[in-house]
Amino acid sequence: MAGQSSRQLIDRRHAGSARLDIDREEFERVLSDQNGLTPLQELTQQAVNAFGVTGTPSFFINGELTTGGMSFEEISRLIDAKLSN
């Protein structure tokens, strides 16, 4: 979503709330509520600092960080490889 204007991002947010059949005013209230956002930001920072997680999806397989979109088969192969060691 890089390069999008604030208006475009807001429009996308509203379109998303409509698709999910969520009341637009309630949706905006929840998004602007710092009481809910602060713990999420703290948890995100903890994941970065403690575990090196910098994006999603991220998986830990036998303690090793694995990132990026993977199919079930790819994840299964990684797990099977770890189990065979």
Rank of each mutant, 00 (worst) to 15 (best):
M1G: 06
M1S: 14
G3L: 15
G3Q: 03
G3W: 02
S5N: 08
S5T: 15
S6I: 10
S6V: 02
R7E: 15
Q8A: 15
Q8M: 13
L9H: 10
I10A: 10
I10D: 09
D11N: 06
R12V: 15
R12S: 14
H14M: 15
H14W: 13
A15N: 09
G16T: 03
G16E: 12
S17M: 03
A18G: 09
A18E: 08
R19G: 09
R19D: 15
L20C: 13
L20T: 03
D21E: 15
D21M: 05
I22T: 02
I22N: 03
D23A: 13
D23N: 14
E26T: 14
F27N: 03
F27M: 10
E28F: 11
R29A: 11
V30H: 01
V30F: 04
D33S: 08
Q34Y: 07
Q34L: 15
G36N: 14
G36D: 13
T38Y: 12
P39V: 10
L40V: 12
Q41G: 02
Q41K: 11
L43V: 07
L43S: 12
Q46M: 13
Q46G: 06
A47L: 01
A47P: 01
A47H: 03
V48Q: 13
V48H: 02
N49M: 10
N49G: 11
A50C: 12
F51G: 05
G52H: 05
G52Q: 07
T54G: 07
G55W: 10
T56S: 04
T56C: 08
P57H: 08
F59P: 04
F60L: 07
I61K: 01
I61V: 15
I61T: 07
I61Q: 06
N62Q: 11
G63L: 13
G63I: 10
E64N: 07
E64W: 01
L65Y: 03
L65F: 01
L65H: 01
L65M: 05
T67K: 08
T67L: 07
G68Y: 06
G69A: 13
G69Q: 07
M70D: 02
M70C: 05
F72T: 06
E73D: 09
E74M: 09
I75K: 01
S76V: 00
S76C: 06
S76A: 12
S76T: 06
L78Q: 07
I79N: 00
I79A: 01
I79S: 01
A81F: 02
A81P: 01
K82W: 01
L83P: 00
L83N: 04
S84G: 04
S84W: 03
S84H: 04
N85F: 00
N85W: 00
